[in-house]
Design a protein around this nucleic acid. Structure first.
Lengths: 116, 116
DNA sequence: AGTTTATTTAACCTTTCTGTTAACTACGCG
DNA sequence: CGCGTAGTTAACAGAAAGGTTAAATAAACT
């Protein structure tokens, strides 16, 4: 609750049901009942997942008659993606990470009692 | 635990301490004690955060004398980034989402009892 | 006004998370 | 061998996650 936006975003994405809900909403806005249909869990459970997605700012709810259509707002994903992009160079070269590491070790070897 | 890789990755990222740990490891591999130093929490707490990062495959531990250096493995971030990239077009146009939505509503209006 | 439809809130349960301190393991060194 | 260093595991506690069913709310429709 006191969590930062990035934590809320990643936490929201850390559940397969919630990711699936976002995928549905990527197609078009949908009512809660409509969103819930493909899942085996109860409606209140879906309602709570949506609450977590709303807490992260990924879903917005409007009101139209008795239906509350949910809309995707992908904006928070932009920040999350930006955070991860920071590591792109790392995952692109992840195969030779170990080599690099071993080289560093050797480079540091000279000092025997190596003060930290 | 039975969770899929993507869920484990996002869950690992959903904590500021763990993200900070990854940022440290992006600089160079480090020992647990060294990693723990900047944080106010106890060493066992850091050890557990590292366990979660390892469970997600983001951190690997090797062994060197009594030290267990931790290494960043950014590979899982690649999959997570790929999942999010799916939404890039959405966040890039997130300002006019509402307009699009309202247009869709109007387009559907013709059918009055609109079978779902 | 009373019913139906859509959705949330309440109350409850179980599991997982996050942190703590204390005890244990593992290795290197004098 | 016994000690110090590095790190994990154990045991415990409180908060949050995720699910359930039952009750409440809100608007639309006779």
């Amino acid at each position: 609750m006191t969590a930062d936006a990035l934590s809320l975003t990643f936490a929201a994405l850390a559940d397969p049901t919630r990711r699936a809900l976002l995928e549905l909403l990527a197609v078009r806005p949908m009512a809660v009942t409509e969103l819930a249909a493909p899942f085996d869990i109860s409606l209140p459970a879906v309602s709570r997942h949506l609450k977590i997605l709303r807490r992260a700012g990924l879903v917005e709810r409007s009101r139209e008659a008795q239906v509350r259509p949910c809309t995707l707002n992908a904006a928070p994903l932009k920040d999350a993606a930006a955070w991860m992009a920071h590591y792109r160079e790392h995952w692109e070269q992840s195969f030779d990470r170990l080599d690099v590491y071993l080289q560093e070790l050797q480079a540091r070897r000279p000092s025997p009692s190596d003060p930290r």
